[in-house]
Design a protein around this nucleic acid. Structure first.
Lengths: 174, 174
DNA sequence: GACATGTTTCAATAAAAATTGAACTTAGGC
DNA sequence: GCCTAAGTTCAATTTTTATTGAAACATGTC
């Protein structure tokens, strides 16, 4: 299990070159890293997001890499993740090849999307599973308590599956 | 990042002796393992919980160990976790040393507690952090956009901190 | 359409997290 | 009070996940 409190949350960052970051950027980074941890998002992604969040104008690939002292691979994957989850937007000036990145207006929507993408597929897959398990338990003569538990679980699953999509409109129009 | 879908979710279980489990126990186990993954709870804990969930009467330490083919250490730690989070209860028959374990009635409450224990401390710690970051941004003359973002974040944090404790009464009386 | 610049991919590596097992502690029966 | 069964702890190990960096791939500019 994850240790409840990380002993050295910034160890890695310190080990590398993030003294390019101001103390406040570091603090905000640590905050986003902690929240991201709860959502199962890797630290490097959270660091990128935090950086963009506190940046006056969008930052480009190289600026991000330089400020955080991370590899190209990590920056690329991090930006991909953030793009895929619609947490950042490209701002492209004409005649300039290089893209700059900014956080999308709603962090809330991004977070809900993030959770939904983890939970929804799990709920969907499990509907038939729970049905089969319940049927099996009935067939093999499980106790009333167990049958009750399992059907409660199944009802929940169904209800969650109804409610979840209502939590916020899925990204663009759907 | 966690791969979106696990390639071989039951690989480990298969590798060991969980052919002592019925197909339905396995399926239910996989379901709980998946959900637990989202909450950051280790697989072994979820497997123990699933087993107890589908068991007619409580199971004791050795039965759990035998059925799941896991080490004493894991069973002990897993039961400790489940006890600490009030997800299981000991049922003790008189004159018998060995305890048997059953799931507590409300899985919902258990899950809410689980989430709260992860999120609340993070929110609490971050209140002063966000204040400092915002002050710093003001001092160093950040753009209005950044200031707006940061104060929004701070407001959220405060609101979440208010709302969260209301989600369900903390375990016994407090 | 060639070239340079910017980005992605992915196998190798490093880091973090979970699991094991053997030594240790605790509790109950005698 | 001692002995033994029952359970816990924790350093070592295994497993999983994240990161790196070099090679491959794009894409805009001239």
């Amino acid at each position: 299990m994850k240790p409840p409190v990380k002993k050295t949350p910034v160890a890695r960052s310190r080990r590398r070159d993030s003294h390019r970051l101001t103390p406040h950027e570091l603090e905000l980074g640590a905050f986003f890293v902690q929240m991201a941890g709860i959502l199962g998002v890797p630290r490097s992604v959270a660091q990128i997001y935090a950086l963009l969040y506190a940046a006056d104008a969008g930052l480009d690939f190289d600026q991000i890499q330089a400020k955080l002292g991370m590899s190209k691979g990590s920056v690329s994957q991090g930006l991909k993740f953030l793009r895929d989850h619609e947490m950042i937007l490209a701002v492209k000036a004409k005649g300039v090849r290089r893209e700059r990145w900014e956080p999308t207006p709603s962090l809330a929507a991004s977070m809900v999307n993030l959770v939904r993408r983890q939970v929804l597929p799990a709920l969907e897959q499990s509907t038939p599973v729970l049905q089969r398990v319940l049927d099996g338990a009935q067939t093999t003569g499980a106790s009333p308590e167990v049958l009750e538990r399992l059907s409660r679980l199944k009802r929940w699953n169904a209800r969650a599956l109804e409610l979840f999509p209502l939590m916020l409109p899925p990204s663009p129009g759907g």
